[in-house]
Amino acid sequence: MSEAILAVSGVHTFIGQHHILQGISFEARADAVTVLLGRNGAGKSTTLKTTIGLLPAARGKIVYRGKEIQDCKPYEIAREGIGFIPEHMGIFAGLTVEENMRVAMLSEDADTHRRLERTLDMFADLRKFWRAKAGILSGGQKQMLSIARAIVNKTSLLLIDEPSKGLAPIIVDVLIDAINQIKERSVVILVEQNFYMASSVGDYFFILDDGMVVHSGEMPALIQDEALQSRYLGISKIS
């Protein structure tokens, strides 16, 4: 078994008075795509936000490449090489696509510019709208921009929160392609409700419910297990 690049153990997170994460534990292996599943409100986004430091972990440990990061600031965690693509994409609507990318680029060195070119080759639309305000982009293009911003830096772990949300199936296929390319260079932790996408890219899964992990295993096993799917994910043959 290969090293875990990220190990979350017994993490509790509060939002205001609400006890949202109640001792969540999971690991992301360095050679695989880990998918976090669970119904609405299970705590998936909260888990990613706690990992990147935007929400403080009240208890528990988050170890990234052997280093405890649960008390670090978000910008410190990001500079350690963790990229975050939030649920609502976090696009700067009043900035141009170019400016969005500039804010994202933590360095102006040749490597970063090479990655920028490669990213723009992957998402040709971004080149087309390079000087346009990001606010005018379509949902799919915004998602591409959000991913592009994260992979323009040298990251070793990407946290992606429901990239397929509200997108047409054909765009979802584009994103699946993109994530399949990205996972060659960086470990991916993906939060997904779209089981088609989750099963297309995921190797391992963790199912969250009420702020805890209630099931985990290898993706093929979950694809077989319809009972488990309908119990936690609300997926059934009829719908």
Partner: peptide, 9 residues
């Protein structure tokens, strides 16, 4: 939040 999560202090 996004600016922080992008690595800016």
């Amino acid at each position: 939040d996004m600016v922080q999560a992008m690595g800016h202090n």
